[in-house]
Design a protein around this nucleic acid. Structure first.
Length: 293
DNA sequence: TCCTATGATTTTGC
DNA sequence: GCAAAATCATAGGA
């Protein structure tokens, strides 16, 4: 007891908790810092659409709920601490009538009480931090909170898909370019193309109308572009030209989905010339791919 | 409320 | 590691 000095170094765990609560805007003056940080982290990682103001306000309201609970509890503990300290001091004062009580002893007693209550406060801070972490992870991990892409974004993706129908596998650069144009992430572009390929293949008939629409669009775009000096258009996965080559349907009547898709570059087995089955003569299916008529 | 469309995730094969 | 296929989960319209 005698050696226990009051000026002990601050507990590093407590410092960490305090810092976190401060950064999240739970402790200290009220601010939107924590929530704003979470939102910006989410948008920059691509996990959240920019128009996530709804979730943002939801996050903020939940955070302020945590904040108010934290402050209420903190106040309660402080009040209890003061009350208990006063009570103990009164006891000591009473005892001083029957035995000598030094001011140093009182001081030490108060320090012990404060230490006990501060350990309770640490627990409160810890559970508040946990609550914030849970809220944050729930907010950031809104994986299945799906938002449809904007009309313009879908348009851009569809234009690329149908103008590269013979090989709808955009290169990494093309994906990046598409992502930039659509305001989505590269992996979302990959997801979109993965879904599109499989769904197109499964139900070509259904997509025929859409395909023709984009073929027309592309053709119109190409015709308008004819006035300007022609740039060589590359086909295949490496190129990125939205108004360029419609290796498409033009002139192919939408009679039967399978037939036109087959003419579009899909192999007889219903696959595109993907990595595993290159379009060259080396392909095990090359004998079929030449027989498209 | 149901159904379809669609973005995301998981499983599987190469 | 990438793509296909299957599946999940939600948005949005009828």
């Amino acid at each position: 007891m005698r050696n226990a000095q009051e000026d002990e170094p601050q507990d590093p765990q407590l410092v960490r908790l305090d810092n976190m609560l401060l950064a999240e805007g739970v402790a200290g003056p009220e601010k939107g810092g924590g929530a704003a940080a979470a939102v910006s982290a989410a948008t920059s990682s691509g996990g959240m659409s920019p128009d996530s103001s709804l979730e943002h306000s939801d996050y903020k309201s939940k955070l302020s709920q945590i904040r108010s609970i934290y402050h209420t509890e903190l106040e309660k503990y402080e009040q209890a601490c003061t009350e208990f300290t006063t009570h103990v001091m009164n006891l000591l004062r009473e005892q001083s009538r029957t035995r000598p009580v030094t001011p140093r002893e009182i001081e030490r007693m108060v320090a012990i009480i404060h230490r006990k209550f501060s350990s309770i406060q640490t627990q409160l801070k810890q559970s508040t931090c946990e609550a914030v972490m849970i809220l944050r992870s729930r907010f950031l991990d809104a994986r299945r909170k799906r938002r449809n892409f904007s009309k313009q974004a879908t348009e851009v993706l569809n234009e690329y898909f149908y103008s590269h129908l013979s090989n709808p596998y955009p290169s990494e650069e093309a994906k990046e370019e598409l992502a930039k144009q659509c305001g989505i992430t590269v992996s979302q572009v990959s997801n979109w193309f993965g879904n599109k390929r499989i769904r197109y293949k499964k139900n070509i008939g259904k997509f025929q109308e859409e395909a023709n629409l984009y073929a027309m669009k592309t053709a119109l775009g190409a015709r308008q572009g004819d006035d300007s000096p022609h740039t060589p258009n590359s086909t295949g996965s490496g190129s990125f030209s939205l108004s360029g080559s419609a290796d498409l349907f033009l002139g192919v009547p939408p009679v039967n989905g399978e037939q036109s898709a087959y003419q579009m570059g899909m192999q007889a087995n219903g696959n595109w010339h993907s990595r595993s089955s290159p379009p060259s003569g080396a392909s095990p299916h090359s004998d079929h791919s030449d027989n498209s008529d």
